[in-house]
Nucleic acid binder design. Structure first.
Lengths: 285, 285
DNA sequence: CTACTTTACGGTATGCGTAAGCATT
DNA sequence: AATGCTTACGCATACCGTAAAGTAG
């Protein structure tokens, strides 16, 4: 078997054309390369070079050999990369969340159940989550609809109701409850990374003017110091985390009352049993 | 870069399940493998084994690694094989002959022109020779028909006329010349490796009973000590290499008067110019 | 004179085998 | 007891770097 080191050196010589240049790139000495190339020819039992007194060049076979060597080097690098990636994947738990509240609530629970694991979490609309569970991109996902294939295992982990938080001076402030259509056309302050809610807003209030905030801090500051309506939810209201001096009005549309389902591949059910045991339908509220 | 040696050892351990068994197969000691496997884990920065006091087993990552290692090992073996094959191909000249006489005549010429080259020669019907020149199986071929594509370069190198050699007691012995159809139905002694001639005989004298001889020696002995007709040719008659006490009668069919064309890819014309220079239409007679 | 390869020489580190220790079956 | 892994130790050798010699441009 030809050692990788020799192939690396051959490839370097093919690339840099002189042993001296190759030696420099490989952080070794040029006599070392002279010897290696001799050894390579020896082990192959084949001549690879055209030698003149102060010049070395690949012959026809040598050119081919350098080309083939690349394949081996690539395979070797591939080996290293794949093993490392696989090892990493074993100690990484990738999750998809369809909304911020389940993420906030479940993160510490997942962390304590799978201590030592690296968590990799995405938040986005959950329309692709089942595919991602299937292809292994995610091991776990929180959906806002029950998966309807028995390829998946799920458990309800809570629900969330949406409110609109308005300034007392706002005409809406006197309504006991409102519909999304009442908001269409208004300017509303909104965080950008809110999972499936973003799609819901885009569909149900297409004429609302959303002032998107990427930063939580900017959002909080603007919410506190402006009279723009913002969305709030049962989760924050229950914890008293509301904006001082605002009125929170429930939204009656069914789309604003959602349930969450912690989901994994049915095949992985056992692997995550400990987590599912920690979760019930009142975990996220 | 991970050295091949480590991957070989990993693969051996995966195959033989214990370091001791793998060590034996690899003709090394078991402590050497212990160290190598440690080093492999170290270089990858990844744990590959489940260690108990007197047992070692691959963990999940280790199993994958052993699998991936196979790819690298295959690539490495491939490298070696391909380089050797290419080198060999450079010093081997593969030729196809459509008949024995051109081979007899041209072999010493080719040998002297391409001294040091290994000659690899086939003899068979030349119907596939152009394909074989195209795909590189042959670099040179002797055909009995001119190639009609300008993809090829050729030069006439001689001709051959077929005779039938019969015992003086044979009724045919008094004919000044004969036709192939006169032979149909007879028992005729024939060498088996005679290139395109075999096809010709099969087609033109389908009812002849050919007594095929694989060995030249057996053929000669039978020819000398029996009264079976045998084919001879202008080449042997010209050189006086005929069977004592036999009559050689020319065959008049056009198929029994053939010309030979030394052929190569037009692209290789220069490479074989020296050989073509040595050859003319009276080389094979 | 410069750039390059090759050979020679001496040092070092890498890897090996033997031996010994220890745990498990 | 037998099997198998690991650690420790001393050794062989394989590889390396420096130095020196030689050659072509």
């Amino acid at each position: 078997m030809i050692e990788i080191r020799l192939l690396e050196q051959l490839a370097a010589f093919a690339k840099y054309k002189t042993l001296s240049a190759a030696a420099e790139k490989l952080h070794t000495s040029q006599p070392a390369l002279t010897r290696s190339m001799k050894k390579l020819e020896d082990e192959l039992g084949v001549s690879l070079f055209i030698r003149s007194k102060n010049h070395l060049a690949l012959n026809e076979t040598g050119l081919r050999a350098a080309e083939y060597a690349q394949h081996v080097l690539v395979a070797d690098q591939d080996f290293e990369a794949k093993v490392k990636a696989y090892d990493r994947s074993l100690r990484t738990l990738s999750m998809g969340f369809c909304a911020p509240v389940p993420q906030i609530v479940l993160t510490p629970i997942v962390n304590s159940v799978f201590e030592g694991m690296t968590l990799s979490m995405d938040m986005m609309d959950d329309s692709s989550f089942l595919d991602r569970l299937r292809d292994g991109t995610y091991q776990l996902a929180v959906l806002h609809e029950k998966p309807d294939s028995d390829m998946f295992y799920y458990k309800k982990c809570g629900h969330e109701d949406l409110f609109i938080s308005v300034h007392p001076g706002n005409p809406l402030a006197f309504y006991p409850e409102i519909h999304l259509r009442d908001l269409d056309g208004m300017s509303i302050l909104l965080l950008s990374r809110i999972g499936f809610w973003a799609n819901m807003h885009r569909e149900k209030t297409p004429h609302a003017h959303y002032l998107l905030q990427i930063e939580q801090d900017s959002f909080s500051e603007l919410a506190a110091n402006s009279s723009y309506p913002v969305f709030s939810s049962s989760y924050y209201i229950r914890r008293g985390e509301t904006i001082p001096g605002r009125v929170n009005i429930p939204i009656v549309d069914p789309e604003c009352h959602t349930e969450f389902y912690l989901t994994c591949l049915d095949a992985d059910r056992k692997k995550y049993a400990a987590l599912f045991r920690q979760v019930n339908e009142r975990t996220v509220l």
